[in-house]
Amino acid sequence: MKSRVIAVPYVIWSGIFIIVPTLFVGYFAFTDSNGTFTFENISKIGKYANVFGRSIVYAAVATVLCLIFGYLLAYFMAHLKEHQKSLCLVLLMLPMWINLVLRTQALQNILMDNGVINRLLGLLNIPSLKLLDTSFSVVLGLIYNYLPFMVLPIFTSLEKLDNKVIEAAQDLGANSVNVFTKITLPLSMPGVYSGIIMVFIPCLSTFVISEKLGGGKVYLIGNVINDMFNQNYNFNVGAAISLVMMLIMIITLVVFGFLDDETKEGIL
């Protein structure tokens, strides 16, 4: 019970399989195919600056939309009765456990030129829309896949809100708008930060969603990395790009309060 040595297997494992690989990313980023130290890979990143920019924009848009729709859902769910709440929670978590590729494929089917949506439009004599292979479809795909990740932490922090605190605010004269802006919203911020982190980072690094729903027209940084490692086998530039992505990720974590324990716990 008081033993410390039983943690040693993990310490060794984490050293070999977490720390070393991370170091290798750095190593590969700063060497060429022969192993000599070079800044060449880093300079090649410049070529992809616009891809980085695009990925950040897509991720940001998706995150903001998830935040708006997700906060609303979390808020309404938190006010349901107990058994309805559990039902909604199960329904919310279910899609998260279905394979990412399958989820995206399902969305792709609907958005196809002769897919269900366009067929319905056809019935109403509306000309079919090009829904697939557009920025719209990619953003939609991001929201579709990651909305639950925004809702859950916000829901958790809203649930933890002591109802008596709300009553105290009302007792002191706050109407429902006041209660929301001065009490509910500030106290739910840890959940909001968690949600932002849990949506923005996966959105930023996606390649399946942009590949399937963007059809090559939406080329994001995840696709670049995928190509580098699985097609061009250019591990060095790939590593360099990954390094930059890790940097962006760390900045996001720091900005949205990874250092705050409450948010950290919220992520789980």
Binding site: V165, A168, A169, L187
Partner: peptide, 9 residues
Amino acid sequence: FQKYALFPH
């Protein structure tokens, strides 16, 4: 209130 219900933030 019984448990004071102070605003934690």
